[in-house]
Design a protein around this nucleic acid. Structure first.
Ligand SMILES: [Mn+2]
Ligand SMILES: [Mn+2]
Ligand SMILES: [Mn+2]
Ligand SMILES: [Mn+2]
Lengths: 219, 219
DNA sequence: ATCAATATTTAGGTTGTGCTAAATAATTTT
DNA sequence: AAAATTATTTAGCACAACCTAAATATTGAT
Protein backbone atom coordinates (compact mmCIF):
# COMPACT_ATOMS: atom_id res chain seq x y z
CA UNK A 1 0.00 0.00 0.00
CA UNK A 2 1.24 3.46 -0.91
CA UNK A 3 1.12 5.73 2.12
CA UNK A 4 1.60 9.48 2.52
CA UNK A 5 4.55 10.83 4.52
CA UNK A 6 2.16 11.81 7.28
CA UNK A 7 0.61 8.36 7.46
CA UNK A 8 4.06 6.81 7.55
CA UNK A 9 5.20 9.11 10.34
CA UNK A 10 2.16 8.21 12.41
CA UNK A 11 2.70 4.48 11.89
CA UNK A 12 6.31 4.80 12.99
CA UNK A 13 5.32 6.79 16.06
CA UNK A 14 2.71 4.22 17.05
CA UNK A 15 5.19 1.41 16.58
CA UNK A 16 7.74 3.10 18.82
CA UNK A 17 5.16 3.90 21.48
CA UNK A 18 4.00 0.28 21.44
CA UNK A 19 7.56 -0.91 21.90
CA UNK A 20 8.13 1.45 24.80
CA UNK A 21 5.04 0.49 26.75
CA UNK A 22 3.82 -2.93 25.61
CA UNK A 23 0.25 -1.62 25.90
CA UNK A 24 -2.17 0.10 23.56
CA UNK A 25 -1.22 3.57 22.41
CA UNK A 26 -3.42 6.41 23.63
CA UNK A 27 -4.50 9.35 21.54
CA UNK A 28 -2.77 11.83 23.81
CA UNK A 29 0.54 9.99 23.77
CA UNK A 30 0.38 9.80 20.00
CA UNK A 31 -0.51 13.47 19.61
CA UNK A 32 2.31 14.46 21.91
CA UNK A 33 4.84 12.34 20.04
CA UNK A 34 3.65 13.72 16.70
CA UNK A 35 3.58 17.27 18.04
CA UNK A 36 -0.03 17.74 16.99
CA UNK A 37 -3.37 18.06 18.74
CA UNK A 38 -5.29 15.02 19.99
CA UNK A 39 -8.10 15.80 17.56
CA UNK A 40 -5.67 15.55 14.65
CA UNK A 41 -4.38 12.25 15.94
CA UNK A 42 -7.95 10.95 16.13
CA UNK A 43 -8.52 11.95 12.50
CA UNK A 44 -5.43 10.14 11.31
CA UNK A 45 -6.08 7.09 13.44
CA UNK A 46 -9.49 6.71 11.83
CA UNK A 47 -7.97 6.82 8.36
CA UNK A 48 -5.34 4.24 9.29
CA UNK A 49 -7.99 2.01 10.84
CA UNK A 50 -9.98 2.30 7.61
CA UNK A 51 -6.89 0.99 5.79
CA UNK A 52 -6.63 -1.84 8.33
CA UNK A 53 -3.19 -0.80 9.48
CA UNK A 54 -4.34 -0.61 13.08
CA UNK A 55 -7.13 -1.54 15.42
CA UNK A 56 -8.93 1.42 16.91
CA UNK A 57 -11.49 1.38 19.70
CA UNK A 58 -12.98 4.73 20.59
CA UNK A 59 -11.65 6.07 23.89
CA UNK A 60 -9.48 2.97 24.23
CA UNK A 61 -6.54 3.67 21.94
CA UNK A 62 -4.85 1.89 19.15
CA UNK A 63 -2.69 -1.14 18.29
CA UNK A 64 -1.03 -1.90 14.99
CA UNK A 65 -2.26 -4.82 12.90
CA UNK A 66 0.24 -7.20 11.38
CA UNK A 67 0.08 -5.16 8.21
CA UNK A 68 0.64 -1.98 10.18
CA UNK A 69 3.61 -3.40 12.03
CA UNK A 70 5.11 -4.60 8.78
CA UNK A 71 4.73 -1.16 7.25
CA UNK A 72 6.20 0.57 10.28
CA UNK A 73 9.22 -1.72 10.22
CA UNK A 74 9.86 -0.98 6.57
CA UNK A 75 9.86 2.76 7.23
CA UNK A 76 12.22 2.31 10.18
CA UNK A 77 14.40 0.16 7.96
CA UNK A 78 14.61 2.92 5.40
CA UNK A 79 15.22 5.57 8.04
CA UNK A 80 18.14 3.67 9.51
CA UNK A 81 19.70 2.67 6.22
CA UNK A 82 19.66 6.28 5.09
CA UNK A 83 21.23 7.28 8.39
CA UNK A 84 24.06 4.85 7.74
CA UNK A 85 24.51 6.36 4.29
CA UNK A 86 24.62 9.89 5.66
CA UNK A 87 27.24 9.04 8.28
CA UNK A 88 29.36 6.46 6.48
CA UNK A 89 29.35 7.91 2.98
CA UNK A 90 28.61 11.61 3.34
CA UNK A 91 30.42 11.93 6.68
CA UNK A 92 27.62 13.62 8.52
CA UNK A 93 27.94 13.69 12.25
CA UNK A 94 25.64 11.22 14.06
CA UNK A 95 23.63 14.04 15.59
CA UNK A 96 22.73 15.60 12.21
CA UNK A 97 21.18 12.69 10.39
CA UNK A 98 17.77 12.22 11.97
CA UNK A 99 16.12 15.24 10.36
CA UNK A 100 17.29 14.36 6.86
CA UNK A 101 16.44 10.67 7.26
CA UNK A 102 12.96 11.78 8.32
CA UNK A 103 12.52 12.97 4.75
CA UNK A 104 14.47 10.30 2.89
CA UNK A 105 12.51 7.51 4.57
CA UNK A 106 9.43 8.53 2.57
CA UNK A 107 10.92 7.94 -0.87
CA UNK A 108 9.03 5.04 -2.40
CA UNK A 109 11.15 2.46 -4.19
CA UNK A 110 11.83 -1.11 -3.17
CA UNK A 111 14.65 -1.31 -5.67
CA UNK A 112 16.28 1.81 -4.26
CA UNK A 113 16.40 0.51 -0.73
CA UNK A 114 17.62 -2.92 -1.82
CA UNK A 115 20.48 -1.35 -3.72
CA UNK A 116 21.25 1.13 -0.96
CA UNK A 117 21.50 -1.71 1.55
CA UNK A 118 23.87 -3.54 -0.77
CA UNK A 119 25.95 -0.41 -1.34
CA UNK A 120 26.31 0.09 2.41
CA UNK A 121 27.49 -3.49 2.94
CA UNK A 122 24.27 -4.72 4.51
CA UNK A 123 24.78 -3.09 7.87
CA UNK A 124 23.03 -4.51 10.93
CA UNK A 125 22.95 -1.31 12.96
CA UNK A 126 22.48 2.39 12.37
CA UNK A 127 24.85 5.12 13.60
CA UNK A 128 23.09 5.18 16.98
CA UNK A 129 23.45 1.46 17.48
CA UNK A 130 19.84 0.71 16.62
CA UNK A 131 19.18 -2.48 14.65
CA UNK A 132 18.14 -2.24 11.02
CA UNK A 133 15.08 -4.41 10.26
CA UNK A 134 15.60 -6.75 7.33
CA UNK A 135 13.42 -6.67 4.25
CA UNK A 136 11.08 -9.22 5.80
CA UNK A 137 10.85 -7.29 9.06
CA UNK A 138 13.26 -9.29 11.21
CA UNK A 139 15.27 -7.37 13.80
CA UNK A 140 18.65 -8.54 15.01
CA UNK A 141 18.57 -8.24 18.79
CA UNK A 142 21.72 -8.00 20.85
CA UNK A 143 22.26 -8.60 24.55
CA UNK A 144 22.73 -5.01 25.57
CA UNK A 145 22.03 -3.37 28.90
CA UNK A 146 21.80 0.16 30.15
CA UNK A 147 25.00 1.48 31.63
CA UNK A 148 22.94 2.34 34.70
CA UNK A 149 22.43 -1.38 35.36
CA UNK A 150 26.15 -2.09 35.72
CA UNK A 151 27.75 -2.45 39.13
CA UNK A 152 31.07 -1.10 40.28
CA UNK A 153 34.05 -2.55 38.39
CA UNK A 154 31.86 -3.94 35.63
CA UNK A 155 32.65 -2.73 32.13
CA UNK A 156 31.55 -3.00 28.54
CA UNK A 157 31.49 -1.48 25.10
CA UNK A 158 29.05 1.26 24.21
CA UNK A 159 26.73 -0.21 21.57
CA UNK A 160 23.93 2.30 21.38
CA UNK A 161 21.95 5.18 22.78
CA UNK A 162 18.38 5.11 24.02
CA UNK A 163 17.70 8.76 23.31
CA UNK A 164 19.33 10.14 20.17
CA UNK A 165 18.60 13.83 20.37
CA UNK A 166 21.33 16.09 19.00
CA UNK A 167 21.78 17.54 22.50
CA UNK A 168 22.53 14.19 24.07
CA UNK A 169 24.76 13.04 21.22
CA UNK A 170 26.77 16.25 21.35
CA UNK A 171 27.15 15.82 25.08
CA UNK A 172 28.48 12.32 24.53
CA UNK A 173 31.00 13.69 22.06
CA UNK A 174 32.27 16.09 24.67
CA UNK A 175 32.70 13.10 26.97
CA UNK A 176 34.51 11.22 24.19
CA UNK A 177 31.88 8.52 24.18
CA UNK A 178 30.65 7.01 20.93
CA UNK A 179 29.62 3.62 19.57
CA UNK A 180 32.47 1.21 20.27
CA UNK A 181 33.91 3.13 23.21
CA UNK A 182 35.08 0.97 26.14
CA UNK A 183 33.57 1.98 29.45
CA UNK A 184 34.18 0.72 32.99
CA UNK A 185 32.30 1.69 36.12
CA UNK A 186 34.77 2.93 38.75
CA UNK A 187 32.22 4.10 41.24
CA UNK A 188 28.49 4.48 41.64
CA UNK A 189 26.86 6.93 44.02
CA UNK A 190 23.95 5.40 45.87
CA UNK A 191 22.38 8.78 46.62
CA UNK A 192 21.66 9.97 43.04
CA UNK A 193 22.78 7.12 40.79
CA UNK A 194 25.63 9.14 39.33
CA UNK A 195 28.79 7.35 38.27
CA UNK A 196 32.48 7.77 37.88
CA UNK A 197 33.50 5.82 34.80
CA UNK A 198 36.62 5.07 32.83
CA UNK A 199 36.38 6.15 29.20
CA UNK A 200 39.39 4.84 27.41
CA UNK A 201 42.15 6.05 29.72
CA UNK A 202 40.34 8.99 31.28
CA UNK A 203 37.98 9.27 34.21
CA UNK A 204 34.64 10.89 33.72
CA UNK A 205 31.63 11.78 35.83
CA UNK A 206 28.14 11.10 34.48
CA UNK A 207 24.64 11.55 35.86
CA UNK A 208 22.05 8.83 36.34
CA UNK A 209 20.09 10.25 33.43
CA UNK A 210 23.05 9.80 31.12
CA UNK A 211 23.71 6.27 32.39
CA UNK A 212 20.09 5.41 31.66
CA UNK A 213 20.41 6.42 28.04
CA UNK A 214 23.56 4.54 27.12
CA UNK A 215 23.53 0.91 26.06
CA UNK A 216 26.58 -1.25 26.70
CA UNK A 217 27.47 -4.79 25.88
CA UNK A 218 29.25 -6.42 28.81
CA UNK A 219 32.46 -8.29 28.08
CA UNK B 1 11.72 29.75 0.67
CA UNK B 2 10.44 26.29 1.61
CA UNK B 3 8.28 24.90 -1.16
CA UNK B 4 6.05 21.85 -1.37
CA UNK B 5 6.89 19.02 -3.76
CA UNK B 6 4.01 20.08 -5.96
CA UNK B 7 5.18 23.68 -6.12
CA UNK B 8 8.70 22.51 -6.93
CA UNK B 9 7.48 20.24 -9.70
CA UNK B 10 5.53 23.08 -11.26
CA UNK B 11 8.52 25.43 -11.12
CA UNK B 12 10.69 22.85 -12.80
CA UNK B 13 8.10 22.25 -15.49
CA UNK B 14 7.76 25.97 -16.20
CA UNK B 15 11.52 26.35 -16.37
CA UNK B 16 11.84 23.55 -18.90
CA UNK B 17 8.96 24.87 -20.99
CA UNK B 18 10.55 28.32 -21.02
CA UNK B 19 13.86 26.82 -22.17
CA UNK B 20 12.17 24.88 -24.93
CA UNK B 21 10.22 27.78 -26.38
CA UNK B 22 11.82 31.07 -25.30
CA UNK B 23 8.33 32.51 -24.86
CA UNK B 24 5.82 32.73 -22.04
CA UNK B 25 4.40 29.44 -20.83
CA UNK B 26 0.70 28.89 -21.44
CA UNK B 27 -1.67 27.28 -18.98
CA UNK B 28 -2.47 24.45 -21.34
CA UNK B 29 1.16 23.62 -21.99
CA UNK B 30 1.84 23.60 -18.28
CA UNK B 31 -1.19 21.46 -17.50
CA UNK B 32 -0.21 18.98 -20.18
CA UNK B 33 3.36 18.73 -18.92
CA UNK B 34 2.17 18.26 -15.34
CA UNK B 35 -0.43 15.72 -16.43
CA UNK B 36 -3.19 17.67 -14.76
CA UNK B 37 -6.10 19.88 -15.78
CA UNK B 38 -5.73 23.50 -16.90
CA UNK B 39 -7.86 24.64 -13.98
CA UNK B 40 -5.43 23.03 -11.56
CA UNK B 41 -2.51 24.71 -13.30
CA UNK B 42 -4.25 28.06 -12.98
CA UNK B 43 -4.69 27.48 -9.25
CA UNK B 44 -1.05 26.67 -8.73
CA UNK B 45 0.15 29.51 -10.92
CA UNK B 46 -1.78 31.97 -8.79
CA UNK B 47 -0.13 30.65 -5.65
CA UNK B 48 3.34 30.84 -7.18
CA UNK B 49 2.65 34.38 -8.39
CA UNK B 50 1.60 35.27 -4.85
CA UNK B 51 5.02 34.04 -3.71
CA UNK B 52 6.66 36.14 -6.45
CA UNK B 53 8.23 33.13 -8.10
CA UNK B 54 6.63 33.98 -11.41
CA UNK B 55 4.80 36.71 -13.31
CA UNK B 56 1.28 35.81 -14.22
CA UNK B 57 -1.07 37.73 -16.50
CA UNK B 58 -4.53 36.29 -16.86
CA UNK B 59 -5.08 34.65 -20.24
CA UNK B 60 -1.50 35.53 -21.20
CA UNK B 61 0.59 32.91 -19.45
CA UNK B 62 3.50 32.89 -17.12
CA UNK B 63 7.23 33.64 -16.86
CA UNK B 64 9.55 32.86 -13.97
CA UNK B 65 10.97 35.71 -11.91
CA UNK B 66 14.66 35.68 -11.04
CA UNK B 67 13.74 34.08 -7.75
CA UNK B 68 11.64 31.49 -9.54
CA UNK B 69 14.41 30.66 -11.98
CA UNK B 70 16.89 30.31 -9.13
CA UNK B 71 14.57 27.93 -7.31
CA UNK B 72 13.93 25.88 -10.43
CA UNK B 73 17.65 25.53 -11.06
CA UNK B 74 18.27 24.31 -7.54
CA UNK B 75 15.64 21.62 -7.92
CA UNK B 76 17.11 20.57 -11.26
CA UNK B 77 20.52 20.52 -9.61
CA UNK B 78 19.27 18.15 -6.94
CA UNK B 79 17.46 15.98 -9.45
CA UNK B 80 20.56 15.52 -11.57
CA UNK B 81 22.97 14.99 -8.69
CA UNK B 82 20.70 12.27 -7.31
CA UNK B 83 20.57 10.69 -10.76
CA UNK B 84 24.34 10.54 -10.81
CA UNK B 85 24.27 8.89 -7.40
CA UNK B 86 21.74 6.31 -8.52
CA UNK B 87 23.71 5.35 -11.62
CA UNK B 88 27.30 5.71 -10.40
CA UNK B 89 26.94 4.39 -6.87
CA UNK B 90 23.86 2.20 -6.84
CA UNK B 91 24.34 0.99 -10.42
CA UNK B 92 20.86 1.75 -11.60
CA UNK B 93 20.38 1.75 -15.32
CA UNK B 94 20.06 5.23 -16.85
CA UNK B 95 16.45 4.62 -17.81
CA UNK B 96 15.37 3.82 -14.22
CA UNK B 97 16.52 6.88 -12.34
CA UNK B 98 14.11 9.64 -13.31
CA UNK B 99 11.21 8.40 -11.24
CA UNK B 100 13.25 8.03 -8.06
CA UNK B 101 15.06 11.34 -8.55
CA UNK B 102 11.62 12.94 -8.89
CA UNK B 103 11.15 12.10 -5.22
CA UNK B 104 14.68 12.64 -3.94
CA UNK B 105 14.84 16.13 -5.43
CA UNK B 106 12.29 17.30 -2.85
CA UNK B 107 14.37 16.50 0.21
CA UNK B 108 15.23 19.81 1.85
CA UNK B 109 18.82 20.15 3.06
CA UNK B 110 21.53 22.40 1.68
CA UNK B 111 24.14 20.46 3.60
CA UNK B 112 22.95 17.17 2.14
CA UNK B 113 23.28 18.30 -1.43
CA UNK B 114 26.66 19.93 -0.82
CA UNK B 115 28.00 16.70 0.65
CA UNK B 116 26.39 14.57 -2.02
CA UNK B 117 28.02 16.66 -4.74
CA UNK B 118 31.38 16.26 -3.02
CA UNK B 119 30.87 12.51 -2.61
CA UNK B 120 30.11 12.16 -6.32
CA UNK B 121 33.29 14.03 -7.30
CA UNK B 122 31.51 17.22 -8.34
CA UNK B 123 30.17 15.92 -11.61
CA UNK B 124 29.32 18.36 -14.41
CA UNK B 125 26.76 16.19 -16.16
CA UNK B 126 24.05 13.74 -15.24
CA UNK B 127 23.69 10.23 -16.68
CA UNK B 128 21.76 11.60 -19.66
CA UNK B 129 24.44 14.14 -20.48
CA UNK B 130 22.51 17.07 -19.04
CA UNK B 131 24.53 19.73 -17.23
CA UNK B 132 24.26 20.00 -13.45
CA UNK B 133 23.66 23.58 -12.32
CA UNK B 134 26.15 24.77 -9.71
CA UNK B 135 25.07 25.95 -6.28
CA UNK B 136 24.81 29.50 -7.58
CA UNK B 137 22.77 28.46 -10.60
CA UNK B 138 25.45 28.48 -13.28
CA UNK B 139 25.15 25.91 -16.03
CA UNK B 140 28.15 24.56 -17.89
CA UNK B 141 27.22 24.66 -21.57
CA UNK B 142 28.98 22.53 -24.14
CA UNK B 143 29.08 22.90 -27.89
CA UNK B 144 26.80 20.01 -28.70
CA UNK B 145 24.55 19.54 -31.68
CA UNK B 146 21.77 17.19 -32.62
CA UNK B 147 22.89 14.18 -34.60
CA UNK B 148 20.25 15.18 -37.14
CA UNK B 149 22.28 18.31 -37.93
CA UNK B 150 25.33 16.37 -39.05
CA UNK B 151 26.09 15.85 -42.73
CA UNK B 152 27.32 12.72 -44.41
CA UNK B 153 30.76 11.63 -43.21
CA UNK B 154 30.68 13.89 -40.19
CA UNK B 155 31.09 12.19 -36.84
CA UNK B 156 31.15 12.84 -33.13
CA UNK B 157 30.74 11.48 -29.65
CA UNK B 158 27.32 11.05 -28.12
CA UNK B 159 27.14 13.47 -25.18
CA UNK B 160 23.49 13.50 -24.32
CA UNK B 161 19.86 12.82 -25.11
CA UNK B 162 17.15 15.36 -25.66
CA UNK B 163 14.33 13.08 -24.60
CA UNK B 164 15.15 10.74 -21.73
CA UNK B 165 12.09 8.53 -21.54
CA UNK B 166 12.78 4.92 -20.55
CA UNK B 167 11.48 3.83 -23.96
CA UNK B 168 13.98 5.92 -25.86
CA UNK B 169 16.87 5.03 -23.57
CA UNK B 170 16.12 1.33 -23.86
CA UNK B 171 15.98 1.68 -27.61
CA UNK B 172 19.41 3.32 -27.57
CA UNK B 173 20.73 0.42 -25.53
CA UNK B 174 19.53 -1.99 -28.18
CA UNK B 175 21.41 0.09 -30.71
CA UNK B 176 24.51 0.04 -28.46
CA UNK B 177 24.44 3.81 -28.13
CA UNK B 178 25.19 5.47 -24.81
CA UNK B 179 27.01 8.56 -23.52
CA UNK B 180 30.55 8.46 -24.92
CA UNK B 181 29.73 6.31 -27.95
CA UNK B 182 31.45 7.35 -31.18
CA UNK B 183 29.09 7.88 -34.07
CA UNK B 184 29.69 8.69 -37.74
CA UNK B 185 27.10 9.49 -40.38
CA UNK B 186 27.53 7.14 -43.31
CA UNK B 187 24.47 8.22 -45.17
CA UNK B 188 21.46 10.46 -44.82
CA UNK B 189 18.20 9.98 -46.67
CA UNK B 190 16.79 13.20 -48.03
CA UNK B 191 13.26 11.84 -48.22
CA UNK B 192 12.63 11.17 -44.50
CA UNK B 193 15.79 12.32 -42.71
CA UNK B 194 16.72 8.78 -41.70
CA UNK B 195 20.38 7.88 -41.42
CA UNK B 196 22.81 5.05 -41.71
CA UNK B 197 25.42 5.54 -39.03
CA UNK B 198 28.52 3.83 -37.75
CA UNK B 199 28.29 2.91 -34.07
CA UNK B 200 31.69 1.68 -32.98
CA UNK B 201 32.41 -0.85 -35.71
CA UNK B 202 28.85 -1.67 -36.69
CA UNK B 203 26.42 -0.05 -39.06
CA UNK B 204 23.03 0.96 -37.82
CA UNK B 205 19.89 2.51 -39.25
CA UNK B 206 18.10 5.26 -37.32
CA UNK B 207 15.05 7.41 -37.97
CA UNK B 208 14.96 11.18 -38.14
CA UNK B 209 13.14 11.23 -34.80
CA UNK B 210 15.98 9.36 -33.14
CA UNK B 211 18.60 11.61 -34.76
CA UNK B 212 16.73 14.63 -33.42
CA UNK B 213 16.95 13.36 -29.86
CA UNK B 214 20.65 12.56 -29.71
CA UNK B 215 23.27 15.15 -28.92
CA UNK B 216 26.79 14.73 -30.27
CA UNK B 217 29.98 16.68 -29.90
CA UNK B 218 31.77 16.91 -33.21
CA UNK B 219 35.47 16.09 -33.25
C1' DA C 1 -21.70 6.40 44.30
C1' DT C 2 -20.96 11.00 43.08
C1' DC C 3 -18.21 14.53 41.50
C1' DA C 4 -14.15 16.61 39.60
C1' DA C 5 -10.42 16.18 36.62
C1' DT C 6 -8.62 14.31 32.53
C1' DA C 7 -8.80 12.11 28.07
C1' DT C 8 -11.00 11.66 23.85
C1' DT C 9 -14.09 12.56 20.25
C1' DT C 10 -17.06 15.46 17.41
C1' DA C 11 -18.38 19.59 14.99
C1' DG C 12 -17.03 22.89 12.15
C1' DG C 13 -13.33 25.74 10.00
C1' DT C 14 -8.76 26.42 7.08
C1' DT C 15 -5.30 25.48 3.56
C1' DG C 16 -3.26 22.96 -0.28
C1' DT C 17 -4.03 20.45 -4.29
C1' DG C 18 -6.71 18.16 -7.16
C1' DC C 19 -11.35 17.63 -9.98
C1' DT C 20 -15.75 18.85 -13.33
C1' DA C 21 -18.84 21.97 -15.41
C1' DA C 22 -19.95 26.51 -16.68
C1' DA C 23 -18.54 31.11 -17.95
C1' DT C 24 -15.57 34.12 -20.39
C1' DA C 25 -11.63 35.63 -23.22
C1' DA C 26 -8.69 35.01 -27.24
C1' DT C 27 -7.90 33.24 -31.67
C1' DT C 28 -9.03 31.36 -36.06
C1' DT C 29 -12.15 30.52 -39.75
C1' DT C 30 -15.44 31.90 -42.82
C1' DA D 1 -16.90 41.46 -38.92
C1' DA D 2 -19.29 37.75 -37.23
C1' DA D 3 -19.24 33.12 -35.98
C1' DA D 4 -16.98 29.10 -34.51
C1' DT D 5 -13.33 27.07 -32.16
C1' DT D 6 -9.98 26.90 -28.67
C1' DA D 7 -7.83 28.51 -24.40
C1' DT D 8 -8.34 30.02 -19.94
C1' DT D 9 -10.55 31.18 -15.79
C1' DT D 10 -14.12 30.79 -12.26
C1' DA D 11 -17.36 28.43 -9.36
C1' DG D 12 -18.17 24.84 -6.68
C1' DC D 13 -16.95 20.26 -4.83
C1' DA D 14 -13.64 16.66 -2.57
C1' DC D 15 -10.05 14.98 0.25
C1' DA D 16 -5.93 15.05 3.42
C1' DA D 17 -4.15 17.06 7.25
C1' DC D 18 -4.14 20.30 10.30
C1' DC D 19 -6.71 23.58 13.90
C1' DT D 20 -10.13 25.38 18.02
C1' DA D 21 -14.11 24.95 20.78
C1' DA D 22 -17.65 22.20 22.52
C1' DA D 23 -19.47 17.76 23.77
C1' DT D 24 -18.88 13.35 25.78
C1' DA D 25 -16.58 9.43 27.93
C1' DT D 26 -13.33 7.61 31.30
C1' DT D 27 -10.73 7.77 35.45
C1' DG D 28 -9.56 9.07 40.03
C1' DA D 29 -10.74 11.28 44.41
C1' DT D 30 -13.79 11.99 47.94
MN1 LIG E 1 9.51 11.03 8.35
MN1 LIG F 1 18.82 6.02 14.90
MN1 LIG G 1 9.63 15.80 -8.37
MN1 LIG H 1 18.49 13.72 -16.75
Amino acid sequence: MKLSPSEENYLKAIYHLEQASDTGVTTNALAQRMETKPSSATDMVKRLAEKELLHYVRYRGVTLTNEGTKSALQIIRKHRLWQVFLVEKLHFHWDQVAEIAEQLEHVHSEELIARLERFLGEPDFDPHGEPIPSKDGTIKQTAKKLLAELKKNQGGVCVGVKESSPEFLQYLDKKNITIGTKIKVLGKEFFDGSMVILVGKDQSFISKKTAENLYVQTL
